[in-house]
């Protein structure tokens, strides 16, 4: 791994722990690029989701810093990070706001007074791509967990981010949908969108991941 290259996301010597608890990470450093798919593995409680939240600026490190495209995440508002890095929460319920599928995909565009017609086209495309046409009029909370996850991912993709952080994207997905997801991610990667995939599914990253990192005892090791 080249040490001189400036990466899209640079995690520099961060330490973090919850509340007054011990450090979950101590001096952790990691670089993530836009031209690669990185898979993050690790045992339950090893800090994979915490690391993702730190990168997104949802948590602040005790020491060290995280740079996003050369700017410290601490200096950016959550919205500014969210526009560049799309984050799929581990629990898709957190990301569901709309009363229908289309509403869910368009609500933020409408709220922010952005071009709805353009967004509508993209929303329809995503609904088709992920095979959600049959649930078009269903209230999103009545969808299955897998469908909610796909819908939350579609909402993230609506914003055309430069980078994606996906927390357990295949959890509760059937084989067919996982296959579609894999194709979509491969396609996005070919279009220059980098991603960090947090998963316990060891089969999913096969043929997709450029790099595997294992998080263990607060350290990141190349897998």
């Amino acid at each position: 791994m080249s040490q001189n290259k400036t990466r899209y996301i640079e995690i520099e010597n961060i330490s973090f722990g919850y509340g007054k608890g011990p450090d979950l990470f101590n001096n952790l450093s990691l670089g993530l690029d836009k031209d690669e798919i990185t898979v993050l593995l690790g045992e339950n409680g090893s800090g994979k989701t915490t690391l993702a939240k730190l990168v997104m600026g949802m948590l602040g490190p005790r020491s060290g810093r995280i740079m996003l495209d050369g700017v410290s995440v601490e200096d950016l508002a959550l919205g500014e990070v969210g526009m560049r890095v799309g984050y799929l929460f581990q629990n898709p319920d957190h990301q569901i706001f709309g009363a229908t599928l289309i509403d869910q995909l368009l609500w933020s565009f409408e709220f922010l007074g952005e071009d709805i017609d353009l967004a509508k086209g993209k929303a329809e495309e995503l609904i088709r791509l992920f095979g959600l046409e049959g649930s078009r009029d269903t209230y999103p909370y009545y969808l299955s967990l897998g469908e909610k996850r796909i819908l939350a991912l579609a909402s993230v993709l609506m914003r055309s981010p430069d980078y994606l952080i996906l927390d357990e994207p295949t959890s509760s997905l059937d084989e067919e949908r996982a296959g579609v997801l894999k194709e979509v991610l491969k396609n996005l990667s070919e279009r220059g969108i980098g991603m960090l995939i947090i998963t316990h599914d060891y089969d999913f990253p096969e043929g997709l991941a450029h790099r595997t990192i294992v998080l263990s005892e607060g350290r990141a090791c190349n897998g």
Binding site: A77, L78, G79, V81, F89, H94, S108, R159
Partner: peptide, 10 residues
């Protein structure tokens, strides 16, 4: 949810 909303630029 508030964080998810803010990540959408709101």
């Amino acid at each position: 949810k508030v964080m998810a909303m803010e990540l959408q630029g709101i």
